[in-house]
Amino acid sequence: MDLLTSILTITIRAGTSLTLATIGEILTERSGILNLGVEGIMLLGALSAFATVFYSHSILLALLVAMAVGALMALLHAFLTTTMRANQVVSGLSITLFGTGFASFLGQRLGPATNNFRLVGLRAERITPLAPAGLKDIPILGALVQQDLLTYLTYLLIPLAWFFLYKTRPGLWLRSVGEDPQTADAMGIDVVRTRYRYTVLGGILIALGGAHLSLSYTPGWSENITGGRGWIVIALVIFSMWNPARAIWGALLFGGINAVQFRLQASGTNIPANFLNMMPYIGTILVLVVMTWWEALSKRVGAPAALGTSYMREDK
């Protein structure tokens, strides 16, 4: 396989978890709820998926369990921020803190006795790439055909989410709840139910992103399997200006950074590994600065107007 094709292959594969979680977070934020729990939910998704596949040998069951775990954690966030009107930033940070600790705890507890109850270092079934033998050696195109099924579904989700958000009635309702909950309420849209629904749906997609890491991208469990991807996702949402169609560019950009870093490390460069590992984080800051600057310059505001605020009828 030539260099470009192999970089492209890794880019697309690395982009899967980012894209899934980014679309999930876009839907959540479009309802006016900021969920900073992405990192924690991705970790729990990755852990629950791997633990399930290890014992049941079923990829499908693993994905379903991860989705259920993501839904539960997002439900907690929705309950705290919507029903109990807790501060969205602190609630999200708490979800991440708890998710990180709980995933670490379970990773040392759910394993088999033979591995000292740990899940680290174990192997199980993975989502295998559908690589038709004749096609994968074709340059460039080869990168497109040797991905796994979840990756294809993820990239299919991008136009679907865009169509839903901009071309359907429920998509319009969702956007109006995030822009102006008072007016949405007056129009007869149930603000609270909408926020619950899309926060939970977002949590499901975020956890699926985590599951893709432990089932395909880096199969297995390790405590730092997400490596801050959950936070990069928050930046990607800003990068895509809350539009699913743009999410693909951010995901590919960061997938690309991962792939280049991977290749440089494999080629034995003189740059210390630590500086290569800084690339995604420095990249995130640069992307944020450029996007914020560009938004201010073009006088475009991508963020839902009511993002981060709680809504209460009685407050009016």
Binding site: L76, F79, L80, M84, R85, A86, N87, V90, S91, S94, L97, F98, G99, T100, G101, F102, S104, F105, Q108, R109
Partner: peptide, 25 residues
């Protein structure tokens, strides 16, 4: 037991506190 239990407990204190912040206001 895994030492991460301490972190799990820290998280578990936060959730009821967040829910309870409603009652102060």
């Amino acid at each position: 037991l895994p030492a991460a239990m301490g972190v799990v407990m820290q998280g578990l204190i936060l959730f009821p506190m967040l829910a309870g912040s409603l009652f102060t206001e």
